[in-house]
Each structure stands twice: as C-alpha cells, then as structure tokens.
Amino acid sequence: MTPAPTPETAEVGAPPPPPSKKPAPTIDSKGPQRFKALFTWLAFIVVIVVCGIRVDADFVQLFSKNSMDNVGRIMNDLIRPDWSYTGRILPAMIETVQIAIAGTVIGSVLAVPVALLCAVNVMPKKIVTIPARIVLNLVRTIPDLLFAAVFVAVFGIGAFAGMLALVFFSFGLVAKLTYEAIEAIDPGPLEAMTASGANKIQLIVFGVIPQALPYFFSYVLYTFEVNVRAAAVLGFVGAGGIGLHLDQQLNSLRYDRASTIILLTLVIVLVIDYASTYLRRKLL
C-alpha cells in the first residue's frame, strides 16, 4: 500500500509526502512551494515550446517518408563498409594519433607552470592566482574546433594547425584539473619544509611535485583520450588527420567508405580509452 499522492504533487512531479506526516500543517506550508514548482515547470515548458518554434523543429518532417528514405539509403551504405579502403586511410589515421600525442604533450608541459601559479597553497598572492584563473577559464570557453578553424586560417591547411588547436585545448583542461589537485595535496610536508627554511623552488620540487605528479599524469592521459576524439574531426575544418578524408567521402556520398573511416576511428578510440583507463587506474 503506497501512500496516494495528492493530484497536485503528481502533476508537478515532486516527491510524494512521507506517509507518517500529518496532513493539516503540510498543506498550509506547502501551498506556496507547490505554486512555485508548478510555475517553474510551466515557464520551462513555455521556453521549450518557443525554442522549438524558433528552430522549426518539425518532427512530422523528420519521420516523413522522404527523410526516412534518405536515412534508410545512408544506413544501407553505412552497414556495408568498404574494407578495401582501409589501407588507404591508415596513414591519415596515424597522423590523427600523432596530432593528439603532440598536442597533448606540448599543452600539458605548458600547463604545469600555470597550474602552479593558480594554486593558492603554492602562490598565496591573490593578485597572481585570480588573473591566471581568469585566463584559464577564457581559454576553456573556446571549443577545440573553433581554435582549429582560426589556426587553419593563420597557418594554412594541415596537421600543424590541428596540433596548435589541441595544444590550447589541452593546456586549459590539464592546467585546471592539475591546480585543483595541487590545492588538495597534504599540507604537512609543505609546512615542515617551510619551517626548516626551504625556498619556493625547493618547496615545489620536493613538496608539491611528488604529491601531484600521479594526478598530473592521470589528467594528461584523460586529456589524450579526449584529444584523440577531437583530432578525428579536426579535418572537417582542414586541420589534418582522418577528418579530411571523412569529409571528402561524405561530400561525395560514399557512405560505405565513410563507414570504414568511422568504424576504424571507433576501434582506435576504444583501444586508446581502455589502455588509458587501465594506466590511470594503476597510477592512482
């Protein structure tokens, strides 16, 4: 026998009142709260409907015969990959991984000094930490593909632009995760070293780095996983890697070849994900 909820709570989807509560006071105190919940849901639904109208969300068209035929035709090609194409895309696949490795390593190395500047237990002066954090947050607001599009325009089409985009992206991600890890380290060794007269450099080398290093490597591996996925689509804006081939095959409607590329990418990403997860578990 479950307690029967009042129609109002059932309507707004709020959790049901516990069965042992006396009904009289709850109605009085919950009246305005219920109104607020109802109002929130109404406002939310209005926002969703208005948004749907703005983008011409047409689910009738989505499930119409014409578009379903299009999707069916693509799916028909996608489930029959052209395996003979594998050999021709392997160099591009290797380039994709190379872009990810180079971008991750350079970005992570650049992130170390900035992470130290952001951590309050290493750099107690707010005048340094706050601007450094603001810069980090700004870097992290720009998605990797936007960086890539800009760098392609500056340095020309090719893997170099893609690597630079990933350098910036990894820098933002690794620096943020690392400074949070540095702030969470055990303060005991740092205090002992300060008390025995260690200078700042000694403090960082012998107090901070040994504690933060496993976390740093773990975040670098995680960023590498993200970067491999990102590198696979960088080619869409001309920044090298397998994405360029995928874009060409999709544009020339060779979905069987596109399917080969997608499947190969999935395999590479899954293998790297599993290897990296295994290494991270061993590190921490």
């Binding site: 490795i101 500056v154 170099f160 690597m163």
Partner: peptide, 16 residues
C-alpha cells in the same frame, strides 16, 4: 621517442 615521432609529422611551413 613517441613525442618526437609525432612532432616529425607536424610540418610547419611557416606563416606563408
């Protein structure tokens, strides 16, 4: 070595 191998593929052709 892995990093050097990766970097060797990034051809920097100058800023045109």
């Amino acid at each position: 070595v892995l990093f050097g191998w990766s970097l060797s593929a990034m051809k920097f052709e100058g800023i045109q």
